[in-house]
Write a protein that binds this DNA or RNA. Sequence first.
DNA 1: CGAGAAAGGTAAAACGGTTGCACACCGGGG
DNA 2: CCCCGGTGTGCAACCGTTTTACCTTTCTCG
Lengths: 341, 341
Amino acid sequence: MSDGRPSIRDVAARAGVSVTTVSRILNGSYPPAPKTRDKVLRAVQELDYVANPHARALTRQGTGTIALVVMMLDDGFLMSLVESIATGVAEAGKLCLIGTSGGNLERELAVLRQMHAQHVEAIILVGAVVESDEYREQMGAFAAQLRQSGTRLVLCARPPIDTGFQDASVEYDNEGGAYAATSHLLSRGHRRILLLGGPDGQSITTRRTTGYRKALRDLGGDLDPDLEIHPAWNRETGYARVRELLDAGPPTFTGILAHNDHVAAGAMQALREAGLRVPDDVSVVGFNNDSFAADLQLTTVHIPARELGLRAAALALDPNPTENHTTLGTHVIVRETVAQL
Amino acid sequence: MSDGRPSIRDVAARAGVSVTTVSRILNGSYPPAPKTRDKVLRAVQELDYVANPHARALTRQGTGTIALVVMMLDDGFLMSLVESIATGVAEAGKLCLIGTSGGNLERELAVLRQMHAQHVEAIILVGAVVESDEYREQMGAFAAQLRQSGTRLVLCARPPIDTGFQDASVEYDNEGGAYAATSHLLSRGHRRILLLGGPDGQSITTRRTTGYRKALRDLGGDLDPDLEIHPAWNRETGYARVRELLDAGPPTFTGILAHNDHVAAGAMQALREAGLRVPDDVSVVGFNNDSFAADLQLTTVHIPARELGLRAAALALDPNPTENHTTLGTHVIVRETVAQL
DNA sequence: CGAGAAAGGTAAAACGGTTGCACACCGGGG
DNA sequence: CCCCGGTGTGCAACCGTTTTACCTTTCTCG
């Protein structure tokens, strides 16, 4: 009362009918007489009444909320993804809860539990994953719990949780992207390609590295462990690690494949500072096709972020989707950071 | 039951006490006998019980949810902002609802209403605003409604809503930033500075333009309406508008002040394509210090996004903050896109 | 030893909806 | 004329908590 929100009883009183009738009309269950219907709708209008979602949730109607959990919002790719998911969810008239895990297992689980407690209709897990046994085990248990309570789980841009059950998921082809990027370099005559992977033990890193190695094997590049290093996902460490390498002596590679564009940018700076030109001395390929890649003229692997997000949203919204697993393709965007050897 | 979640009654039964007692213990309202307490806590553990937030919300306990509304998630600045708000909220153990308005008044209001209906504890409005009378009026009305129902409103990186009441807000110094950036160019001898503003009629545009003009007046630059143009916030239109200008004849300016880094990047591309070098022929200053600005060696205005976000979160979380209005400073990050004339 | 006051606990009424079931009304077929 | 089925409604129970008001004990102290 004190908060000025009318209750369903107020509406009923004003329309001169019972609470039941109001509820029925508002939910479209059971078609009552048009006359009553009008009276009620008018009263709703006049009072500016909106049903309380919490009360509604209590009687298991569904909460109209979709949850979204992401490690961190720190690059353009994730942002497009989140934006498009949010848009998709909003267009369906539902709300979107968002949580960040910071790549920390405990925090991720805490956030997930909290969302589950909220009785969200679905939980979308977005992005990279730390591939520890502990993570797998805990997530497996959590996923089971979700299923038991009828909460859908959607995996977006992320590997499956290995448990008997196949969760709905939308992925993109990490391995294929890395393969294509590596092939691109190989086809231009590069044999020794420095891999600037993501942190070791993260799903994305593993997959992309697999693609890289496979291309080298298939097409005859040098498969050398010394050529695989693992900076964090940011510009700074990309810069630092390449800098280190160059300080130690002349480069033993002619091409670089970075696992994201920020790292590629860092690497390019290090090259520049060492007096090496891109692409004349060293070629560089990035990953993600972040918006700034165009400014750097960076050749990179495009990932269809919006599409990914919209599909994830669709899966989350649909109680029983026809197609519950999709893998979207990636492709190389050729700009000017790769030279023919 | 069917969803496997234990209720407070189950806990009570298992612990052999009444529901009331369980509730009291869980909420820490007055301390019951340690013995009972233990029994109850054990039962909670064993059943893995978590209170239903909806039922809780029904009795006006507050929902533990903060809402966040942003126009669009399309640049690094907004993203840092959202990330830091989300982090701040999560650290307080609360949940964060997110909605995007796409710069569309109707959709914005729809989202806001929906959030209000959820009884969120506070709503944070983030970022630029279309300055139409209609917007002002509708938002004013909405803000009044919020106040009446005890929902806090926090404005972040956004001008106040003009209504009698002063809402909590965290801003940064748009005018000062633009002033500083313009001064920087002026002090290097530039007199004719092309302003690449944001879309006309948006709050940010207005403020930054004011700073730009003031600097020109104070320090003796050319105040020429022809030098103020208004692309959208993205790279593409920044490119297109500058391209147009250059196609029409040699540049009538020696410096450019862009209202964000994407636009600056677009402008730089247009300059490059027209055979003009940055900074030798034309100097460029951006705004926001987006992460890629470092890669472009772009001189730009830094906005403390994280700080802004954390403060907004703090305001949203605190029912009665001591300081409810802050303006954070901005400063110019000097890189290599401005030359001495 | 008896009267209060604490202390520890409970039953029941909210909170704002949904829903199963009963009831009233109405026209029509036997 | 009676019974029947269908159509609109309303009553009341329930969803899972918190909270108010009240009831027992058990202490404490005169």
